Amino acid sequence: MPIELLGMIATTPGSESLAVTGPVVDPDYVREFSRAHEEAGFDRVLIGYSASSPDGFAVASAALHATERLKVLIAHRPGFVAPTVVARKLATLDHLTGGGRVAIHHITGGSEADQRRDGDFSEKADRYRRTGEFIEVLRRTLTSADPFDYEGDFYRVEGAFSAVKPATDAGIPIFFGGLSDGAVEVGAAGADVYMLFGEPLADVAEHIRTIRAAAAKAGRTVEFSLSTRPIVAPTEEEAWAKAARIYAEAEARIAARDSGDTLSFARPLQREQNSVSADRLQEHAKRGDVHDERLWLGITRLTGPSGNSTAPVGTPEQVAEALLKYYDLGVTRFLIRGFDPLDDVREWGEELIPALRAGAQARDEARAAESEERVA
């Protein structure tokens, strides 16, 4: 099947390895960054979430109105806004931006400190159960033709109904991520797309088997997304040299931060994070900086539990082939973001993205031909 390519936009320039410049919200940068993704051939962009970052719905609206085809994936943390309200916000935005361009990503919260910044002192296990209820009420609000009642441990509504429904039959795709206890059950039961970090191939294969089995018990199927940070260059040697430069720049930025400098509000260097997915990446990094030939975890080891930080390194063709090995496992969506965010997006549009699409198509055609031969 055709792959979906996702990027990630921010509201101001900056990354682990680049100094932050400009205001926290730079409207011109948001428009430029969004258009760059569309021109490079991306299908969708993720708008991240933290307790100190700009509002994701507003950023999504700006990105949608700056582009013609680009879709958005709005990260949302359940527990602060009622699911019925979020459903109406999503459906309204869907209508106002052409239809079929809006999706939501549920993040239950891996950082206790960040949860508490917005007043949430609940236990992580409870947060996952709350996310499960949130998704259930959200989906019913988006699809129910009649008012409905719901009573759970965290949400209770009477006569809930939304006059505005998604603008297309595709609805509002529901994404979810997390590997903590309880996460798989929640995601398998409620998500359309389960988001995974870029772990080594064998580990991703095991996650897919586990989640598929849980979804099957619930009478459902789930698709999968994988998040990485590709580093590409014309030659493999140049790509590894580029990785070394990124490491050195990030190391210098961390030293500057520890001496009193600060990074962007959106920086992923949140050492207090309590995430099973991030902890797993740290365990992989302890075993070695490189896995599966070119999956580099140097930044993972350097930055600590920082989430999406693994990087396939090589030429565009080599990186595309490395990512397509996950496609062979069942991953149909790839979330890629760069260490030099805007320039990386433009560079990827020249060779990496076309190579990914061509490689996926070639695999699909080969499988179709094999199926026809077996039938014959």
Rank of each mutant, 00 (worst) to 15 (best):
G190Q: 14
L46M: 15
F334Q: 03
V204K: 05
E68C: 00
E199T: 07
R77W: 14
A355V: 02
G100Q: 10
A160R: 14
P27A: 06
F148A: 01
R220Q: 10
S225W: 09
G171K: 07
E133D: 09
R212S: 07
K217T: 12
F134D: 04
S144M: 07
F57E: 00
A233P: 08
G7F: 14
I47E: 09
R88V: 00
L93Y: 04
G119E: 08
R212Y: 06
G198D: 10
G190I: 03
V59K: 11
P316W: 09
S225H: 09
P83L: 03
I107P: 07
D181W: 05
I107M: 07
L6I: 04
I353L: 15
A163N: 09
G338W: 03
A248H: 02
L324G: 10
I208H: 03
S259T: 06
H284I: 00
K286H: 10
G171W: 11
M1I: 04
D146M: 10
P166H: 11
E133T: 05
G314W: 03
D328E: 15
A358K: 15
A244D: 13
T300R: 10
R280L: 07
F339Q: 15
A160M: 08
T12K: 07
G7K: 02
T315Y: 15
L324K: 07
V193Q: 13
A188N: 11
F57S: 04
S61R: 10
